[in-house]
Design a protein around this nucleic acid. Structure first.
Lengths: 196, 196, 196, 196
DNA sequence: TATGAATGAGCGTTCATTCAT
DNA sequence: TATGAATGAACGCTCATTCAT
């Protein structure tokens, strides 16, 4: 169905949407996510403010559309890596993802806020990344030299919890990447350590 | 009789501050934290707006001053309880604190936002509660029938991580207290289980 | 029928602006210029505060837009009068203008403050009235029984100088209209007296 | 009468007042007149805000006490100069005074605002400078090669009017000292030119 | 005199979102 | 779809001045 080529109207719509995304990314590159203003985006895209809101329900939806693809590209990378054989390797694999999530407090907050969904139908693109994260790390934990007394899903949940914890703590202190990795390593060793 | 030269001045300041806090708490009791309006607070306190801002740098600082004491009072309660002997008991002990933190998404966000400090000197009252949390739960974990292969501090950190994780996840879904407790129990059992 | 594509938009803007000006004038009529409050204007105009500030950079700009038209209408009147044949007649012609400018100290101050411009492009509506004043009085001075040894422009400048001086001095003293006219008459006689 | 040495209290009062004036001048030197804030002055002087207001009825009175002495010192200088013999010389003599008055728009405004008095008893220190200005320039105009058909007092008034006019106009345009002098010269030549 | 907390009325701003055209 | 003027409900701030002690 819908085999006919896209109508002109649809292609115009897509073009406008692309312009808006592109403008947003350009703003983010310059000023960061938190500083993004709808006003600036539309002026850069050369469209009216109202147009923005006929493409994105609200600014938050745009934010999701900007952040989720980046999370997914990091997950793509991570997926392509060989299964890690140690906690240190896990942490190294996750490093780029961590760096992105902690690039701005605001980004961390947006991601946390969208990390779940009130209902199945409302699962947004960021929440999906969390699912995907579990899908990616579960097998690692199942296959590696880690605890076997609890399910890989639970292990992955814990990994997530410690990941969040580590990043949250680091917004407080100096926000040091090295420190963050070391701390996460400690947590994960304790969490994943095989129970004899 | 000149022994407390500044006490008059201080007491006026303290009295005004108390009026503002009291008014704020009254507003919160009625309408919740998120609904608090500076304008309403000052009018209730019978104080000028300028006065408000000479007592609290901004609304957020007031929020901290409202929330931290409540956290501390829950911690007082928790501290006064007998050392828990099982995960279930821990969860039960923490229940009132969890209920408060999750009473409003807004409260949870404020707490998270103030959970740390950029520098030692900037440790705010909410960040201090996090320290205190560790001081309170550490001994529990050290004394109870839990893992002994890692330090109580690390155990307490993990407890914190799973606590946050549980609460964050529950804002997404239905925000069910029962579910939250169950989930936390599962996490903690996995985390605290002795590694014989 | 698509011949005025932007007129709808413009007309809405113009209508809102007109509402604001009208409301302002109504406030001024009742309470005077100095007593004008932005809040009162917007509530009377039935318009949001944000709208006010998207029409006028600040209150001062509104003030200019209120005062300049009145100055211009006095200048219209003045222009329509027959060329004066004596200093007394000049003073009489200027009387309504003087009365308006000195109606409130605040008005006088606003007018003085906007009497010039930092650059040609920034000439505001009040500054333009000063130019126009020269255009109107120059011919009078050229045609009447006055000094001929210097240019009408210079004569007009001097007239302006004595006008300001007279009004400024009168804010100090009792602010008596009669006295103001007499003083101006003396000044102008001395200034405009033909040098035999 | 009052031949006894000043009491300690009086001397303390004078000392405090001196500290305030000194602090004010220091602020002015750094940031200019307009930027002067009572807060900064008292903190620099090391006294309480209330103390300021027991020495100066309001900030404006302080401003007068800062500006009038400077005007007077310029008038002292001017008075010590030989009687000018030409308009050019007059302008040259007045130059330092003009430079001071136009150093800030705010200073010009303060001076204008205090240039007169509502009643004899209220003649402030700045208004006195205007009187003194007349006393100084009157004899110049009486003795030099200028108009003799009108009184020196009237001539001096006119000089004042053109002086103000020149300074006012220069706040608009580029505020060029040279231009100001040239313009004043033109005005005064026209005003002071002997009527054959 | 000295103190300094408190006053207070209004200004300008913010900026995502809506809605009539 | 597209437009962009209008909304709106606080917030934060200013800062000379007052007043109880």
């Amino acid at each position: 169905m819908q085999s006919r080529p896209m109508s002109k109207v649809q292609s115009r719509t897509l073009k406008t949407r692309a312009k808006l995304i592109e403008a947003s990314e350009s703003v983010v590159k310059t000023d960061g996510y938190e500083a993004l203003r709808v006003e600036q985006v539309v002026s850069l895209a050369g469209v009216a403010k109202g147009t923005f809101f006929s493409h994105f329900k609200d600014k938050d939806v745009l934010m999701e559309q900007l952040i989720a693809p980046r999370l997914n590209s990091y997950l793509d990378e991570i997926e392509s890596l060989p299964t890690p054989e140690s906690v240190e390797e896990i942490v190294r694999h996750l490093q780029p993802l961590i760096a992105f999530i902690t690039c701005e407090r605001y980004v961390f907050d947006v991601i946390l806020r969208h990390s779940g969904a009130a209902a199945k139908e409302e699962i947004g693109p960021i929440a999906e990344c969390f699912f995907r994260m579990g899908m990616v790390t579960g097998p690692w934990l199942a296959m590696g030299p880690f605890r076997k007394d609890i399910s890989p899903e639970l292990l992955a949940d814990g990994l997530g919890a410690f990941l969040i914890q580590t990043m949250a703590l680091n917004f407080c202190a100096l926000h040091n990447e090295r420190a963050m990795q070391d701390q996460l390593t400690i947590y994960l060793k304790a969490w994943l350590q095989p129970t004899v």
